[in-house]
Design a protein around this nucleic acid. Structure first.
Lengths: 251, 251
DNA sequence: AAGTGGTCTAGACCACCAG
DNA sequence: TGGTGGTCTAGACCACTTC
């Protein structure tokens, strides 16, 4: 596995933050402190704290000690790509059930999204997800062929497929692209989510990649209106969000 | 400023990717290549490529050259905060009409969002916006009191209020926070957008700030389903988007 | 077998922050 | 003013990919 020195240090710091050794708002030991304590070079310490910074756990300013910003265990990137991780971090009771698992050949659109050969095999999964006992989301996912075996092994009430395949098959999500819009509930959506047909749903389609840029899955998640809100911060310096025309515009 | 060697290298690579010097799917030069070419150490090159990887532009696997994953440039912050700028960049014909302009006292929620005194005056604007001749968005904006005079001066068919007040009154947007969800069309929405009542709309509420952190406006934009899609990219290195519970969850 | 990225070391200088 | 993080160097060994 990825058992390296800097990951080890990061995990130790993560644990210390989580358990209150370094409380919210407190200052972390300096880089030289940590490198002496762990008997590693300063570069290795910096790799470790960079990992925590990318998880949003600590902040840093030149000249001042690093500060503990949050103590939750979950990363926001993971939370965006994993419904289960997000829900658990919110303190919600989460449940999932796989309703359908089918191996079939990819449609042209799916092959294009997953960057796979046209006509290659993919795994289609239909899944319903609950928050605090209420059905709130229907998930329709197409997994790339190389991921399918790992997903087929999982039990149908598996809470987090992404977590499970990361642990068991070392398939780790690293990058995601998300398309967010509103759609009317179809008859299957309506039945599963217990809403009226054509009632509003918030749709999040996303494509997930490994660090090497290999596509893992292409997903269409539909949330009952009112159950979730997506939140984006941006600035003149960095604009991660953009607006795109839907099919109705420029037809 | 932040003019460092590794940023400089990153920007040069970003440009080369964007302009096709390194096309989609092609391999980047090796680290040793780049360090020779730029006359920097390998560590500096690695800082540069790590930046691009966190933006999702390139992927990497141990042992193999880095690969170009995408070449699009993200749309600017201005385009996200200005419907008019976005539409024009898309090549769409855009039109706008202010239907209502009212000075009134802020509700408690509005005062809270705009970080203003409870009971202070704000300017409420109702506006309808067209793309290529079709009504696609209803905008309900509350402008902070200090911005109101500049907005009241504008003609009712002003295409971009943000652009106009930036030019005339030097009120410039710098940060934004966006909440995106789906709602059912109310009767006013339905009439203006020419859709059925309760049909799905994509809602983008956003709060806009100056560089100094002063709130400019709090807006509720509702798009006809199918007319726009929001697109967000994230990575393990940087996650600007998060999911939030709506009022239905954890009630 | 040669090339490449992942990890790590042991230094260095600078800009910035705190007391 | 001394400590701290940000940047950079010039090496090294290893795991992995590619040919």
């Amino acid at each position: 596995m990825g058992a390296t020195r800097y990951r080890e240090i990061a995990e130790s710091l993560r644990h210390a933050i989580r358990t209150g050794t370094y409380p919210l708002g407190s200052r972390l030991p300096s880089e030289s402190d940590l490198s002496a304590r762990w008997e590693v070079s300063r570069g290795t310490v910096r790799q470790a704290v960079a990992l925590l910074a990318s998880e949003g756990l600590i902040g840093s300013r030149q000249g001042a000690r690093r500060v503990v910003l949050r103590q939750e265990r979950r990363q926001s990137f993971q939370q965006l790509n994993s419904f289960a991780q997000w829900a658990q971090a919110m303190g919600c009771e989460v449940a999932s059930r796989i309703l359908t698992r089918t191996v079939r050949t990819a449609t042209d659109e799916e092959a294009g999204r997953l960057d796979a050969e046209p006509g290659s095999e993919v795994l289609y999964v239909l899944r319903l997800r609950w928050l605090d006992g209420e059905p709130v989301m229907v998930e329709r996912t197409v997994y790339a062929g190389w991921v399918a075996p790992a997903v087929l092994e999982l039990p149908e009430d598996c809470v987090s497929i992404m977590d499970s395949i990361a642990e068991r098959a070392d398939i780790v999500a690293h990058y995601g692209e998300h398309l967010i819009d509103a759609v009317a509930a179809g008859s299957e959506d309506a039945r599963l989510l217990r809403v009226r047909r054509a009632s509003p749903l918030l749709r999040q389609r996303h494509l997930t990649y490994t660090a090497a840029g290999r596509a893992i899955e292409w997903t269409d998640d539909r949330y009952r209106a009112g159950s979730v809100v997506f939140n984006v911060m941006n600035s003149a310096g960095a604009a991660p969000l953009e607006r795109r025309a839907g099919p109705d515009v420029r037809g």
